[in-house]
Amino acid sequence: MTTAERPLVTTSTLGLGRSDSAATLVRAAGAQAPAAPASAEATSTLSMHSMHVERLAAGFGRFTAVDDITHTIPARTITAIIGPSGSGKSTFLRCLNRMHEEVTGAWAKGSVRLGSEDIYAARIDPVQVRRRVGMVFQKPNPFPTMSIYDNVAAGLRLNQWGRVPTLDEKVERALQQAALWDEVKDKLFQPGAALSGGQQQRLCIARALAVEPEILLMDEPASALDPIATLRIEELMRNLVRNYTIVIVTHNMQQAARVSDRTAFLMMDDDRAGRLVEQGPTDEIFTRPRDKRTEDYITGRFG
């Protein structure tokens, strides 16, 4: 990827700060105008809560997992990433908060802009990126040695030396946002691992929300849960989308249809690299897919 292909907007304050002066906003709008569909969404892409992926390629060693993905994630929407297994859905998701590079041999090219800032720019600290782009994993992974309270507070404590002011309130708010407060308020200091699977996953969501990210990435968050717990997570997502931008990877098409506003369909090409086949509003993708492969996939003809 040459510098010419990089986005124009790279100014910012120290470590992914939040400078969006009018000038950068205008330039940013200019840079991504061709990619964004014209509508109300075009303005929302400028928000701090939006992401814009351009010509992203990523993989491991010689293997390319996803290639040439250009995609816009509008603010305060739920975007579902669907596709057959091996199509690079998770890799794509993990590129959005630079978790992908934590795997040995992993590489990524292209640009991913959070608001107006390229998170793959050289001076960007991935640690700071992850505080603004939170993540929930496939399997609930609470810290087993910590209490429920400490699990939620874990991210907050990272940024503070000594006592964190208003920690109690922040923990309570995160648990309430994750619709877990009522169930755990009397046992905050019991180990998080003692909760049921669905509760554990909501605990992990609370943990991610506590650091007040703008974006929440969810990698098949309900795949390890029973139908009732899954439903609760989906309800929760619909509530959270008022304040957060959510990107969810799912292999469950009903789930994508139920919860998401927009859907992106990834599929691997003959070279085994995942590419973006089609994306758009969820109801369009599921009722009037433009691409034959999308239609085949959502009607269950393969995958």
Partner: peptide
Amino acid sequence: VPNDQREAMLALGATRWETIWRAVVPFAR
């Protein structure tokens, strides 16, 4: 120590050492 513990801490915006000291070491305590 299972990798999901490392990832959980990293995804919260922890540095390398914080990930080790607050997630990996306690798990293996």
